[in-house]
Design a protein around this nucleic acid. Sequence first.
DNA 1: CGGCAACTTGAGCTACTTCAAAGGACGTGG
DNA 2: CCACGTCCTTTGAAGTAGCTCAAGTTGCCG
Lengths: 243, 243
Amino acid sequence: MSQFDPSLATEACIQCPIRHRAVCASCEGDEIDRLAAMKSYRSWHAGETIVMEGAPLPFVGSVVTGCATLTRTMEDGRMQMVGLLMPSDFVGRPGRAAAAYEVVAATDLTLCLFKRDAFERMLRDTPHVGQRLLEMSLDELDAARDWMLVLGRKTAREKVATLLANILRRASTDTHPLRAELPLTREAMATYLGLTIETVSRQITGLRKAGLIALEGRRGIACPDLSALLIEAGDDEDGRLID
Amino acid sequence: MSQFDPSLATEACIQCPIRHRAVCASCEGDEIDRLAAMKSYRSWHAGETIVMEGAPLPFVGSVVTGCATLTRTMEDGRMQMVGLLMPSDFVGRPGRAAAAYEVVAATDLTLCLFKRDAFERMLRDTPHVGQRLLEMSLDELDAARDWMLVLGRKTAREKVATLLANILRRASTDTHPLRAELPLTREAMATYLGLTIETVSRQITGLRKAGLIALEGRRGIACPDLSALLIEAGDDEDGRLID
DNA sequence: CGGCAACTTGAGCTACTTCAAAGGACGTGG
DNA sequence: CCACGTCCTTTGAAGTAGCTCAAGTTGCCG
């Protein structure tokens, strides 16, 4: 995972890799200057917990590089991942002092942080941050609902194929065959898919034996034919695009 | 289900039952007048489809009375409900011309509608509608994520208990024992819970035989002890309240 | 090269589904 | 007001996908 050098982005965020996709995307001039003045960067190593479920969260922010997971845990220890945060995704909730979910760095991770109260003031004063955040929240809501279909109705094989296809789609830059480094362990995948680790492993093996994917070391994955994998996932050929 | 008489609410929304919870909640003076001038009411009977998945949706709006469901369907017919809309909940997405989900009236239903383009102009011009919509969307996102835990990790019995407890909590006005009319058929419950209709039926029977609920006719349900039902649901005593 | 965590594989079990049929609530028309 | 038909719901019996428990195996770091 390529680490991000904060010094590159300090000058009004010019060099920032998520400048045009994150919550700051539609800010210009005064607005971006104000955000730049109040931001700070912080990094975590893979596996580190960023906040525990229910713990106070005095900041909000954006994923700059790396990947984080949101999980909820039941009293008896059963866990469900409820979100997978990739670069440009937003962390935290304005107006709420405590984290609703445990946030863990799945890979090495850098966040661009804002103090919550300062960010909330920004939301009140300027329109663009709030508008962008609304747009992003609605996208997250759609993604969460799409995932409800995966959890509620798909078979184990379809679930695993869905996840791998999503990761391949997001990670790839038009290389053939499609390749990616999985940001998740088998355990994290199981937590995301509502399965056990053994079932995830068996399904990955099954997909490999069917020639739908190839494994490269422990974390590498390649896919010779993404549309074949998507069919295995029970999706329409190439997902649906609504707008 | 008590029908709503639109004439009661036409005067600047004074009589509107969702005036202080819906997307208009934080509007006053000019803003509420402007919304009132552009609103219109429309009703559907239980079972009627409001929009099909992917169909154009030229309006957005709020549930005034009744209950609607959001569902996604796979090509082979498997369905998953992804949202249950109750009074004050918002329907539609600004900035999107097509419905991402099928919307169906679960009970007789009245919506307070705004043309999408006019509503989007309102979002741009005035801060309060957007701020309220952001707040509501974040609540919906939390609810969707909570439901992911239900779908991914709970047993059939826990799922059914969770749903019934939610309905009882929302529908009740501090009567003991707690009573409610189920707004959903067994089939709709199964679609919501990621189960089959038979499993839902068996679990309801099981809860009844355990004395956790009592059935009254086909749709009526009573609960002598909500906290016992919540324990059956695998939840903390009374759900979690974060703020 | 040794040690450890992550992953895979196997065998048996169980919760939920599937398929099938019977039982009730509710509305309609006689 | 009762008979009838329909749809929703319940119940039963058998099948199976995914879980649990228990060993192995592999990649990777020091």
